[in-house]
Design a protein around this nucleic acid. Structure first.
Lengths: 216, 216
DNA sequence: CGGGACTTTGACACCTCTCAACTCTCGTGG
DNA sequence: CCACGAGAGTTGAGAGGTGTCAAAGTCCCG
């Protein structure tokens, strides 16, 4: 963390007596697996990536966090995954005690607890995504989820900014970068999506994408 | 729920003023997806299976619950998966309010909250399991986890009772029954395990199993 | 404009799924 | 006690899809 971020944190604390705000640059690491959990982070802006690495060296993207999500829930007092910023991000920092009810803010306690339950639901949804058979089904479902949650309507089409590189999408969906790329190409060839650069996806045929997702 | 179970519940409540105990037979359904969450269940004995079904009809086993686990965490007030008993089971029943802190038992509240955090960790571990490439790696890791958590030492060998049918193992690991069966046969042929009937697995070569799990 | 990282494309092998038949296990009833 | 039957598990053959390795292409930022 640079001096700039410390300054921003202090400024934010003065502006909002309830929470400390923190800004981090793209690529910053918030915590690593096995670090002791001292704080929870409530994402305000930006996108985070939660990853774990198995003994074999393979990497799994456990989740992408978006504004409103809370990251840093402890397991045995320790973090169970690495957390990095895919984009510049701002976060509200809460003491770990706030989760356990030891803080002085019952509303915050309830909010963090609700976030933990959402986390359970999100992880189950992720499992369901991986349960799909083929690359087409998984990627189509992923894109639909992302578009519904974070897409923006522009010129009659839903537009999605993929903040993460192909490799992260692959590690999220348990497939290789090459398969992600090939499948996107298929979708483009089928007239279902358009790619503006590598990051921006324009949805041209929602029916087609849903069909591809449903045909497992 | 049969009259017998009601009687057992009442008897247990008298014996233990803090919790209502409930017994269910093998195959019983505790709740289904989209049911409103009124209670949480703390498993005392037996094994439960949590499943979800995707639109395509494919089924995913989200988790197996063992004694000490808590099931029934709500998502938007509703259950997000089906829960059935793989064996006869006994459960402590808690009001949903106990999770939210509305109850009169702070210790219970903390215990349920800790269980929610364990649930997050368990789901992430499950994701990691699915991230493995091949059937051998997934099944070997699964068996190692199960043996370490629920295996019993007998005659110098670790013995594991697989309470669930092959189909459930397959749906847990995202592979077909046939592949589960074939992989078990390979392990047996390699002298790593022995099968006593379909349920009982005897671990003959832990090193071999760990190697199979590590070789992704 | 140049360089490096990311993405896309291609060829091929391997593994898992699918479909099908057979065997085994275990509980039931004679 | 044994025989039977139904469900579960195992085994086999073939096809398709995805991983791997390799190389070319593209985008983005300095």
């Amino acid at each position: 963390m640079t001096a700039l971020h410390v300054i921003e944190t202090e400024t934010a604390r003065r502006a909002d007596h309830l929470h400390a705000l923190r800004s981090v640059p793209e690529g910053a690491t918030l915590f690593r697996e096995a670090d002791p959990v001292t704080h929870l982070f409530e994402l305000r802006t930006g996108v985070l990536r939660l990853t774990r690495v198995l003994e074999t060296g393979r990497r799994q993207v456990v989740a992408f966090a978006h504004p409103g999500d809370v990251v840093g829930f402890p397991a045995g007092g320790l973090h169970h995954c690495d957390c990095e910023a895919l984009t510049p991000a701002t976060l509200a920092v809460h003491r770990r005690a706030a989760l356990e009810g030891g803080g002085t803010d019952p509303a915050l306690h309830r909010r963090l607890q609700a976030a933990a339950l959402r986390e359970i639901a999100a992880l189950q949804d992720h499992l369901l995504l991986l349960a799909r058979k083929g690359a087409r089904g998984k990627l189509a479902s992923f894109l639909l989820n992302m578009i519904d949650a974070h897409g923006q309507a522009r010129g009659g089409h839903a537009v999605l900014e993929l903040e993460m590189p192909r490799a992260d999408i692959g590690d999220y969906l348990c497939m290789t970068v090459e398969t992600v790329s090939r499948t996107l190409t298929q979708m483009r060839a089928a007239g279902i999506i358009r790619l503006d650069g590598c990051q921006r996806i324009v949805l041209l045929d929602r029916e087609g994408l849903m069909e591809m997702a449903g045909a497992e």
